[in-house]
Amino acid sequence: MSSLLHITNGDSFTERLQQLNLKGDVITWREMLCEGKTLTNVGSESFWKTRFEFLHKNYKVSKSWFIEKTLKEYRSLCNHKQQDEIVLWFEYDLFCQVNMLAVISWLLANRKYAQISLVCSGDEDDSDKMYGLNELSDEQLLGLYKKKTLLNQDDIEYADYVWQLYCSDNPMRLENLTDFKNYNFDYLGDAIQSHLKRFPSIANGLNAMENNILKQAMEHKHANKKGLLGTLLQNQGNLGFGDSQYERAINRLKPLFTGFNPVRLSKKGKEILEGKTNYYSTIQDNDVYLGGALKYNFLYNTNVDRILKL
Rank of each mutant, 00 (worst) to 15 (best):
M1D: 13
M1K: 12
L5Q: 05
N9C: 12
D11C: 02
R16L: 01
R16D: 04
L17M: 08
Q19T: 04
E31V: 14
L39S: 13
S44I: 08
E45Y: 09
K49V: 06
R51W: 01
F52C: 06
L55V: 11
H56L: 03
K57M: 09
S64M: 05
K69F: 06
R75I: 10
S76M: 09
C78P: 13
H80Y: 11
N99R: 07
M100F: 06
L101R: 10
A109T: 02
N110I: 00
R111T: 02
Q115F: 07
S117K: 14
S117D: 02
V119Y: 05
S121W: 01
D123A: 13
D125G: 12
D126V: 15
K129W: 07
Y131A: 01
L136G: 01
E139Q: 07
L142N: 04
L142G: 05
G143K: 12
A159K: 03
D160Y: 02
Y161D: 10
V162W: 00
Q164N: 14
Y166H: 12
Y166F: 15
L177E: 00
N182H: 13
N184W: 09
N184T: 14
D186W: 11
Y187L: 03
L188F: 03
G189V: 01
I192K: 00
P200S: 08
G205Y: 03
L206Y: 00
N212Q: 07
I213C: 10
K215N: 10
L229P: 07
L233M: 08
Q234R: 07
N235W: 10
L239F: 07
F241L: 14
F241G: 04
A249M: 15
A249H: 11
A249K: 12
A249V: 14
I250V: 15
N251L: 08
L253K: 10
T258E: 10
K270M: 02
E271Q: 15
L273H: 13
E274T: 09
G275C: 06
N278L: 04
I283R: 11
I283N: 05
Q284G: 10
L294H: 15
D305N: 13
R306G: 03
K309R: 08
L310R: 15
